[in-house]
Amino acid sequence: MVKISFQPFAGHKADKEEETQPAVLISQPHQQQVMKRSSVATLCCLTFALLVFTCSLLYACVYIYTHYIIPQVPSQSEFHCSVMYDDTMMAPLRTHTRAHTHARPHTHTHSLDEKVDIYLQDNYELISVPVPDFSNTHPAEIIHDFHRGLTAYHDMTLDKCYVSKLNTSVVMAPRNLWELLINVKRGSYLPQRYLLQEQMWVSGRVQDLQPLGPFIANLCSGKDTYTLRPRGNARRVYKRGADSCFGVHHFENTFVMETLICDSQ
């Protein structure tokens, strides 16, 4: 039996493979263009990643401020304060002999209790001072309206209102007072023990309450309302028969304030 086989020629196969496989030629300009496109794509990816990171960080800050910071600074806060202070001006009024001696004036220690409502959104403070434990002072309700720049005293004994210009040098703004009372409540700050005084004089009657703003108008509605003017170099002087004076003690700073209101008879 004869077996016949065919062996392909290597030369023809190589030629055939060369014919079937096309040659790929990359020119130098085309290669630079591909690399440039790759750099632009990388830059776009980095920019997009940075934008996503910035948006995420901004969202996180808004979330923290909304859920943690805003609840700690509510639009309205209520505080009950009890402050101890020294009054060195009371001794000369009670002991006439001390005016003729070189002895140091006796110090009287008092306690001031009050309720403070702070309205941060409306930018005003409402202070309620109950009946004090000593004479020559009246219980009162006080409004400090920082939007209008006015202070109103409602004398609960006389049931009268007195309005004056807001003294921002001794009355803290609502946000600052809120922070002070928070620190006092935490025990990280103690108020000063001295007493600061101011003397006010009745200068006229208020006929229309609307220009005073809604908060003071609501406080003084239905009450005789008068304007006050400050008197410089205020001292504790009570003129018998000529002037009728009473004091209102209140706390809206690092010290206790006494507002002495005098009305000429």
Rank of each mutant, 00 (worst) to 15 (best):
V2F: 11
S5K: 15
F9C: 06
K13W: 07
E19D: 09
Q21C: 01
P22K: 02
L25W: 02
Q28D: 12
Q32S: 14
Q33V: 02
V34M: 14
S38G: 03
S39D: 13
C45W: 06
A49I: 05
F53C: 12
T54K: 08
L57H: 04
L58H: 01
I64C: 06
Y65A: 11
I70R: 13
Q76C: 01
S77W: 00
C81K: 08
S82Y: 02
Y85D: 06
Y85N: 02
T88A: 12
L93V: 06
T95S: 11
T101Y: 03
P105G: 00
D113N: 09
E114Q: 09
S128R: 03
P130G: 06
F134M: 04
E141L: 09
I142K: 01
D145F: 02
H147M: 00
A152E: 05
L166R: 08
L166Y: 08
S169F: 01
V170H: 02
V171S: 07
V171K: 01
A173Q: 09
P174E: 01
R175Q: 04
I182V: 10
N183E: 06
G187F: 04
E198P: 04
Q207V: 10
L209D: 04
P214N: 07
C245E: 01
C245R: 15
V248D: 14
N253Y: 05
D263A: 15
